[in-house]
């Protein structure tokens, strides 16, 4: 537990670093909220008009003053107000997060349900036909860009089946489970395909390693059934690298899947950040990036704790 506390203590420091980077880098890009709103028409503004709009968007003060004001708010749990939404940034994030979270969970389920058994199968049938098929699938999964797969799915569905998943507006799981799942299943497959491929490869190679270990041979010689050895003795140990890769991928997915959200018109965190950058909605960019960074840190901490649960030999911390 001591270790968890230590890790949690480093969070504010890391997040502060993230806040600095995102705050200043977004302001380094040419263009601001005024040009984002008006485009070339911004050139018609008089200096007074421009000053008035800058005041409205909160970009009239020197950058360091803006930063201190924002940081002050942050310490009180106030992420500022999004100028695009006209709402507190935290409300906007929390409105978009459930979709991203659900999509990440679904993709991970697909990846694990498909990836682990296939990886195990390939390892047990090393260098045979089924192994080859799995390896080709894994290569295909890792090398197919998700925009290709996503567009292909939309195209096939609309041309051959005369339908597409409901787009534009997200139906939360609490509202209508069926619509919700139908809306998310294809984006989840799109994301899950590459994810499953990495899980497949990692579980195959981890399994191969473990299968060569002494204790597996011992288990076999003690007369434990073949699949009993695989599932009960070998798999738990082979899962450790799978947990690592899944955790990292899951952490990435919690940051939103920009391209897939774009293709399937899902209002998730990825598109939120992209639109916020396009509109130079600084407060929203900063808030969302911080939120994503926090999630990433949290997921990593959870993975570390999972290691301990999976392998009692691992001790966290230096003692």
């Amino acid at each position: 537990m001591n270790h968890v506390a230590q890790r949690l203590l480093t969070f504010p420091l890391i997040l502060w670093g993230v806040s600095l980077i995102v705050f200043f880098s977004i302001r380094l890009i040419p263009g601001d909220a005024i040009t984002a709103m008006l485009g070339t028409e911004a050139g018609l503004l008089t200096p007074d008009q421009r000053a008035s709009l800058a005041r409205y968007f909160g970009i009239d003060q020197p950058v360091h003053v803006q930063y201190l004001n924002w940081l002050g708010g942050l310490l009180h749990g106030d992420l500022g107000v999004s100028v695009t939404f006209g709402k507190p940034v935290l409300d906007v994030i929390l409105q978009h997060f459930p979709l991203t979270l659900e999509l990440a969970i679904l993709s991970m389920i697909i990846a694990l349900v498909v990836g682990v058994p296939l990886g195990v199968l390939a390892a047990t049938r090393n260098e045979r036909l089924s192994d080859l098929v799995v390896r080709i699938l894994a290569m295909l999964g890792q090398s197919t860009p998700n925009f290709v797969l996503g567009l292909l799915i939309v195209f096939v569905l609309s041309v051959y089946f005369g339908t597409v998943p409901a787009m534009g507006v997200f139906t939360p799981i609490t509202e209508d489970l069926g619509t919700n799942l139908l809306q998310l299943i294809f984006p989840a497959i799109t994301l899950g395909f590459a994810f499953a491929a990495s899980v497949m490869r990692i579980s195959r190679s981890a399994m191969l390693d473990v299968l060569g270990d002494d204790y597996v041979r011992t288990a076999h010689s003690k007369g434990v059934s073949y699949w009993g050895v695989i599932w009960k003795h070998a798999l738990p140990n082979a899962l450790i690298p799978v947990v690592t890769i899944s955790g990292v991928e899951f952490g990435y997915l919690l940051g939103g899947a920009v391209i897939v959200e774009q293709i399937f018109a899902l209002p998730g965190l990825g598109r939120l950040v992209l639109d916020a950058v396009t509109h130079r909605d600084y407060a929203l960019v900063q808030g969302t990036v911080l939120f994503i960074a926090f999630n990433f840190l949290l997921v990593n901490l959870i993975i570390d704790l999972l290691y301990v649960a999976l392998d009692p030999r691992i001790r966290l911390g230096n003692r």
Binding site: V154, F155, V159, V164, M167, Q262, I263, A265
Partner: peptide, 11 residues
């Protein structure tokens, strides 16, 4: 509805 990809609009 905002569908950012026009191919998806066509679909």
């Amino acid at each position: 509805s905002v569908l950012p990809d026009e191919t998806a609009i066509l679909a």
